[in-house]
């Protein structure tokens, strides 16, 4: 069964300030969405809510099917959120990439193979043994992608994956995201402007004045901007 995300009357406030109010959103497996909005409209907040990392004030988000066991306090196992500036754990690159897989109790040999594949995929092999904090911004972004890729997520939230990257890194990230899309991953990318990554998307959403509208095409997004 295809993965589906549905939002119903979602409201988020910080204190008394209402950030947004979203009546409906329906995302189906295989779609790629671009979430556009100015700084501070709540893109990060919205994505974290959809990924289960933050609680809405009212309304709900459902991602179905959910194979999480009823007693478990884990988040949806097929959904991953990548931070605007990725956090790297205080260890080397390999351990960072292996983190999620080790949690799923794969056998050690498989984990090692998978990590090698993920590093190759994100072109990080030459940095495998380096402490992760020494990585540059672009490398960290790729590390975050590899760390997610290894878990084969079906729904991936990328929060401004290209902020602070130079053009070459942007095109590398775009290429990796393109491959994820080809593998059938559903992706939502946020950004405040269009770029190579958001051009891969087939749906465009604009978050503005606390409401979410669908816009038909890129040109329309540009007109909004």
């Amino acid at each position: 069964m295809g993965l589906e995300l549905k939002i119903d009357n979602l409201v988020k406030r910080f204190g008394t300030r209402e950030i947004f109010r979203i009546e409906q959103l329906h995302v189906q497996e295989g779609q790629s969405l671009h979430l556009k909005g100015e700084n501070g409209v709540g893109k990060t907040t919205l994505m974290k809510i959809m990924a289960g990392l933050e609680k809405p004030c009212s309304g709900n988000v459902s991602v179905t099917p959910n194979h999480r066991r009823w007693w478990s306090d884990r988040l949806h196992p097929d959904v991953i959120y990548l931070h605007q500036t990725p956090y790297v754990f205080m260890s080397n690159v390999v351990d960072n990439v292996a983190y999620g897989l080790k949690l799923r109790k794969g056998n050690r040999h498989d984990v090692k193979n998978k990590v090698q594949q993920a590093l190759a995929w994100a072109r990080l092999e030459h940095l495998a043994e380096q402490p992760a904090y020494s990585l540059s911004g672009g490398e960290r972004q790729r590390l975050a992608l590899a760390r997610a890729w290894i878990l084969a997520p079906r729904l991936l939230f990328l929060d401004e994956p290209t902020a602070n990257l130079d053009r070459r890194s942007v095109s590398t990230v775009a290429e990796l995201v393109g491959q994820l899309l080809e593998q059938g991953t559903t992706i939502m990318v946020s950004s405040h402007q269009s770029n190579t990554v958001t051009e891969l998307c087939n749906r465009h959403l604009q978050l503005e004045d606390g409401a979410l509208h669908e816009v038909e095409s890129l040109t329309q997004v540009k007109r909004y901007a």
Partner: peptide, 10 residues
Amino acid sequence: RAWETARTLG
């Protein structure tokens, strides 16, 4: 973000 990263990775 350390907490959130750990949580979202399962």
